[in-house]
Amino acid sequence: MASIIAKDLVAASATPLILSILKNGDSYGYEIIQQVKEHSNGLLEWADGMLYPILHRMEKNDFIESYWGKADTGRKRKYYTLQDEGRKELIKMQEQWHQLYTLLMSFKGE
């Protein structure tokens, strides 16, 4: 049974998850939230209030860049694309999470 993820973990995992999604292609806020929800089978349901400040901060840090495009309906839509700094940061974070996971699992059997 899926358990509720602690708030701190949800916050900490947001940046690497966003970077991972954008590595597969440009995306926008609503779609990012939907992808996270789908991939986590509903375990992670991000609010817009959480996502957008993170996206804007990642943009300030040059991990991602935004540009205005058009939705199918013709509406203005802001897309985000991964930058080189973001790629490097993703690799670094994936390594860190893997190390933490390995450490955690090493205690599991004890």
Partner: peptide
């Protein structure tokens, strides 16, 4: 200056 993004998000949920 960021409200257009919110507007698009709102429309997505409504649609």
């Amino acid at each position: 200056d960021k409200v257009d993004e919110l507007k698009d998000h709102l429309y997505c949920i409504i649609e």
